[in-house]
């Protein structure tokens, strides 16, 4: 009995790994199918302009998705990321506006710290005050968004107030390359750090343990609350960084626009990338591919002349279909393993 159970769990874990590979391969395949199909309809799709617009759309998403992925792995949810992004963007934007010549690296650091502080508030409420993540972040989403308006007095940060050096992050890349701007490099660096963190650090492993079985994790002495706190704070910090990247990418920060509804895009990308909504599994590579796929779909729709009004419905469909398909596949696998 024990032996067969053991074998069962071993089998399921290798199966899970293999499944994740298949999942990533499927996303890549889907990516190529979409690119091939859209190029067949309109050869202009593979122009350097469109590739650039995909590459500019994805980094913002990837940076926040790394945090949201960890949150979903530990069976949580963070719907306040869009508001944190807006808050960090507006505050740092105001600093740039009021202090011309302010160091942009210092500004970026400040954005990350602001995001981390807001994320830490989420973390404390969830980890120690024990409020369910949805309720916490739904509440803080409104609070942070409200403060975006209060702090900025409802005024937009205009392009001429954003340092040109910051805007250049979205225009030029290393060695002056035009195709791969710095924001892409930053996003890749964040993804690489997330990969190393989740794979090789103790806290990173704890994230998976906590998501697979919170009770077992607590019984094994894994610091549940501290891990939750770290994950939500990190997510906040990444959303803060994304606020700076937003200012760089779009050249403005608007209190009623920047980051509004962004949480849905991020969650769609994370779920599409194979992170399990029941928690416990999810990979950095999958999430990056999910972001890339969503970005490609977005640009492809624009190329095909589908109106921007379809965007929201498509995010909804993407989340819903992925969650349904994943649940069905998982049930089949469970049946296979238990031999029913």
């Amino acid at each position: 009995m024990t032996v067969s159970n053991l074998r069962g769990s071993q089998q399921s874990s290798t199966l899970a790994v293999r499944l994740a590979r298949i999942r990533e391969a499927a996303i890549v395949a889907l990516l190529f199918i979409i690119i091939a199909a859209v190029t067949a309809i309109d050869p202009r799709f593979l122009s350097s302009f469109n590739i650039r617009s995909i590459l500019l759309w994805v980094p913002l998403l990837t940076v926040v998705a790394m945090g949201e992925m960890m949150v979903i792995i530990i069976r949580g949810i963070d719907v306040s990321v869009g508001a944190i992004l807006g808050f960090a963007g507006i505050v740092v934007g105001m600093i740039f506006r009021d202090n011309p010549g302010f160091n942009i690296y210092l500004g970026t650091l400040l954005g990350i710290l602001i995001g981390a502080a807001l994320g830490a508030i989420n973390g404390v409420l969830i980890a120690w005050v024990k409020i369910p993540p949805v309720i916490t972040t739904l509440g803080t989403l409104s609070v942070y968004r409200g403060f975006v308006f209060i702090v900025s007095d409802g005024r937009q940060i205009d392009p001429n107030h954003i340092p040109t050096e910051l805007i250049r992050w979205s225009q030029r890349g290393p060695f002056g390359s035009q195709l791969i701007p710095w924001v892409v490099v930053i996003a890749l660096a964040v993804a690489a750090l997330a990969y190393l963190f989740l794979r090789y650090t103790k806290t990173g492993r704890n994230v998976y343990a906590l998501g697979s079985n919170p009770d077992a994790a607590a019984l094994r002495g894994i610091p549940v609350s501290r891990t939750q706190f770290i994950v939500y704070t990190t997510t906040g910090a990444l959303a803060g960084l994304a606020g700076i990247l937003y200012a760089s990418r779009y050249g403005f920060v608007n209190p009623g626009e920047t980051g509004v509804g962004f949480e849905l895009t991020v969650i769609a990308a994370v779920v599409l990338g194979g992170t399990n909504v029941f928690g416990g599994s999810g990979s950095v590579i999958g999430t990056v591919l999910g972001c890339l796929l969503l970005g490609t779909i977005n640009v492809a729709l624009a190329v095909l002349g589908v109106a921007a009004t379809w965007q929201l419905a498509i995010y909804g469909i993407v989340i819903l279909l992925t969650v349904i398909v994943d649940a069905i596949i998982q049930r089949q696998i469970r049946r296979l393993i238990t031999g029913e």
């Binding site: 949810i77 719907v79 949805v134 849905l264 969650i267 769609a268 779920v271 909504v277 029941f278 009004t309 379809w310 965007q311 929201l312 419905a313 498509i314 995010y315 909804g316 469909i317 989340i319 819903l320 969650v323 349904i324 649940a327 069905i328």
Partner: peptide, 21 residues
């Protein structure tokens, strides 16, 4: 399908308003 209510209604939050749009 025994899906989490949160995931389903978050998806339909986007989907239903998206259809309206």
């Amino acid at each position: 399908l025994r899906l989490p209510a949160l995931a389903v209604t978050l998806a339909t939050l986007a989907l239903y308003r998206g259809l309206a749009q």
